[in-house]
Design a protein around this nucleic acid. Structure first.
Lengths: 151, 151
DNA sequence: CAGATGTCAGAAATACTGATATGG
DNA sequence: CCCATATCAGTAGTTCTGACATCT
């Protein structure tokens, strides 16, 4: 390591390794969820609804990092498959809070177990303390980009 | 924190925070590169060619985590803008190795500086040693998913 | 022959933009 | 009035799938 002259190997760039890890995780999740007839977006939607019942479509979209339009299609598909219910009329304001059906709860439990296995495989080279630290550091990094540009 | 019964908060899931960080980085890079008239895919392509001249289109695609078809469109666009050159006939096999033009080198240098600032902002809450550790851990995590499922 | 590559075409999912309407 | 929401429509960029030819 000479003097950090500004030339950084691609594999040493945080952005690159972050993208690499996220891409690998995405591929692994796709493969794991395919036998369960769920896409990653559908799984994320189900998991969100299961953990925070009553979320609006816009909140689901933000939580799953997709557009409102895409999430709208996802929720409709899950409704058609009987995994999600949404009231037809708004009880408060314009929000139509989504909830899991009984089958939806079964499905998300199975999917969650499968995804958890993938996450554990990804974390397998790290010690338990390093795993926890990784979660915290990634959270801090995301917050540093979202909140504090000039603030 | 009671007993870790298998119910994990969404914000504690590695997959979620990883996606969160990657998504925030993507958004920040988009905003940073827009004034330079570059998309993230175009920047990744230029950076790859700059650091490893002579890469084939398929190698570029793998390196940028996109499909060969998408990378093909990206390279063509960069060729039309005079940032990239590719021989019309293959000198060896079927590969048409891409290289940066003089203007391409200028453009990628400016873009690289801008992206590096974003990366530094993302890493700002972390100490120097923690930054290096994060890079290594992410690399290990990606490798754990790519290489070693059952093999 | 197997394997990697470059290329083309169609289908599908997603995102972006703009517009409209409703409710706080 | 301002803002967030839900929804619809059109456009565009990306991926996936399959296919074919070329070269090692």
């Amino acid at each position: 390591m000479s003097q950090d002259s500004g030339v950084t190997e691609l594999e040493q760039r945080v952005g690159y390794v972050l993208k690499q890890a996220a891409s690998a995780l995405r591929t692994a999740m796709d493969a794991t969820l395919r036998p369960l007839d769920l896409t990653v977006a559908q799984y994320a939607c189900l998991e969100l609804i299961g953990q925070r019942p009553g979320l609006s479509n816009a909140e689901l979209a933000r939580g799953a990092f997709v557009s409102r339009q895409s999430m709208n299609l996802v929720v409709r598909g899950l409704q058609d498959r009987g995994l999600v219910t949404r009231p037809t009329t708004a009880t408060r304001g314009r929000v139509l809070p989504a909830e899991l059906t009984a089958e939806g709860r079964l499905r998300v439990r199975a999917a969650s177990r499968a995804v958890r296995r993938v996450e554990q495989q990804m974390l397998s080279p790290l010690a338990s303390s390093a795993q926890q630290r990784l979660r915290e550091d990634l959270t801090d990094c995301a917050a540093a980009l979202t909140n504090g540009p000039g603030r």
